[in-house]
């Protein structure tokens, strides 16, 4: 079966103080559909950059990233926005909810951007809030929610357009142990429902349940 995500000889470098720093050189990586892939590694090892490459937030210096057989590095601005909105859900370390919107409206945003019908979108929001156990907080603003609650809303938002891929960048990095477990549990359930979940973390609690674990140190030192 063809992998859902393929990194073919991806190199990534950036300039720091007039010096070129190579982050990856000729990286090859395959992630299968329905996998729970965990990226492990210390800070600065490139986990977030790898997720950002998949999300199309940054472009590689060279190489190709294929998602569903499409080379996303060749997408124009419009195509990459559509790809992010329809095929990806991103869960951030710092939740990144919009402060002016309440919980339900934050979940509604990707649906509105995707052009969903308002009544169907509202129905979908209700379903998602129920799924993450936040129905009772739907009218609350981010400032009125705890970190764990904000992250659950962010997960609901990531699921809004039923994307195939969920990216989670240190989703428990800003949470206490109890809330961290709730969030990891949710992500695991999402994976069990058939979604491909790619998670960067320091947290080893999900490792036993993962289909693939990538140690960034090993990954980045692979032979080209």
């Amino acid at each position: 079966m063809e992998p859902l995500i393929q990194f073919n000889g991806v190199s990534m470098s950036y300039r720091a103080k007039h010096q070129r720093v190579d982050l990856f050189t000729g990286l090859n990586l395959n992630i299968q559909q329905g996998e729970l892939a965990i990226l492990l590694g210390p800070s600065g090892s490139g986990k977030t950059t790898l997720l950002n490459l998949i999300a199309g937030f940054v472009k590689p210096t060279s190489g190709a990233i294929l998602v569903n057989g499409q080379n996303i590095t060749q997408y124009d601005d419009f195509e990459v926005c559509r790809y992010r909105n329809h095929y990806l859900g991103y869960v951030f370390q710092f939740f990144n909810l919009i402060y002016a919107f309440n919980a339900a409206d934050n979940v509604l945003v990707p649906l509105l951007l995707a052009g969903a019908n308002k009544s169907k979108a509202d129905q979908r929001v209700t379903e998602l809030l129920e799924q993450v156990g936040m129905t009772h907080r739907r009218k609350h603003y981010p400032g009125e929610l705890s970190g764990g609650e904000q992250q659950r809303i962010a997960i609901a938002r990531a699921l809004a357009n039923s994307p195939e891929i969920i990216l989670a960048d240190e989703p428990t990095g800003n949470l206490d142990k109890k809330n961290g477990e709730i969030v990891l549990d949710l992500l695991h359930k999402i994976n069990l429902s058939g979604k491909t979940v790619i998670l960067s973390t320091h947290d080893h609690r999900l490792v036993s349940k993962a289909s693939a674990v990538y140690d960034m140190t090993t990954l980045l030192n692979q032979d080209v």
Partner: peptide, 8 residues
């Protein structure tokens, strides 16, 4: 955030 969520 909006750009990350797919806003053009």
């Amino acid at each position: 955030i909006l750009l990350a969520l797919g806003a053009t």
